[in-house]
Design a binder for these strands. Sequence first.
DNA 1: GAATATCTTTAGACAGGCTAACTATTAGCT
DNA 2: AGCTAATAGTTAGCCTGTCTAAAGATATTC
Lengths: 182, 182
Amino acid sequence: MSSYQANGYWYGEGRSVPEAVDLLNLMRRYREAERRMRAATRGSMGMNETDMSALRFLLAEHRKGVTPRQRDFAEELGISNASVSVLIDRLCRDGYAERVVHPADRRSVGIVPTDYSDTEVRGTLHRMHEQMMDAVGTLSEDERVAAAKFLEAMIRSVEIDDEPSRPSAGKGVVREGALPSR
Amino acid sequence: MSSYQANGYWYGEGRSVPEAVDLLNLMRRYREAERRMRAATRGSMGMNETDMSALRFLLAEHRKGVTPRQRDFAEELGISNASVSVLIDRLCRDGYAERVVHPADRRSVGIVPTDYSDTEVRGTLHRMHEQMMDAVGTLSEDERVAAAKFLEAMIRSVEIDDEPSRPSAGKGVVREGALPSR
DNA sequence: GAATATCTTTAGACAGGCTAACTATTAGCT
DNA sequence: AGCTAATAGTTAGCCTGTCTAAAGATATTC
């Protein structure tokens, strides 16, 4: 399997220019490495997959000035409202989030992250994010164009036969102006 | 948010050359698209995540002429032997695999895929794989080199701070599983 | 051939998902 | 206003897939 060498960049059978199969192998390796990384973060925080996704979503929305409702979590995560209810219970119990009354609709519960959760996540995932930004920063303009072309081709490959195309898909997120709630 | 246009390739704020952040967004979009694709396949076959991984592993080993034991599944998937036992029960029950006596060790049970499972999987995941190969085939040599450089940088970013470096990582890795979560 | 090691199975517990039913609130109709 | 339908969240009961611990079956070693 793929005679890769850390510093020399050799591929397939002694090739120094990657073929399609080599790029696919690199994609697979990246996916594995990222999965391990996220798993480690999750493990160190004692959280499961969906709770972690929920927390990341919560922090992202909060940074945009939006206070999501439980319903938004259900849509984002693709799980039922009932499951979200229990999920938020867990996040609150462990000090990552708090329930607040939603100013615009008293049926709804607004969810806000605690300061604790922000610093906790920043210490791990944000660090990875910055490293990735730095890494890409070393590429030339031509290389970035090529990388983008490659990624776009890959995306088209895996989504083409599901539906015609839906690039910046959905995000039916209710922008819900106002209420920074803080 | 990210004014992407399906045919024109515009990024960030009207840029036509992608910045680091645009490439990271593309990575995220690819990950999402692939996840949806795998989820759809899995759904259409009525299987869960680990069972699907197990089946892919089984087919890959079989193609190499190897008859894996249950123990091998446990290592590959990062779950306990007990769980593998039940997992193989499911695969057999649904007609994807069969238990045979292991030629070399009669304590062990050899697992072989059925013809049915091979055609079933070929019809879905292999099709995606071929589309990806075709897509990458349209890139020039320079573009493939750049894409590889990009991917290598990304891999380094997400695995560098876990351990010094372990490029072809494979096998020995402790696969995430098992966190008590109180 | 008895002791020990290895591979699998079974039993029981737990976590996190689901649906269905219930309460509280809001929106629409007349 | 008042009734009805729709929406948000909670709770209860079930199911699946994981785990650990213990037991069964076969190999290996002395």
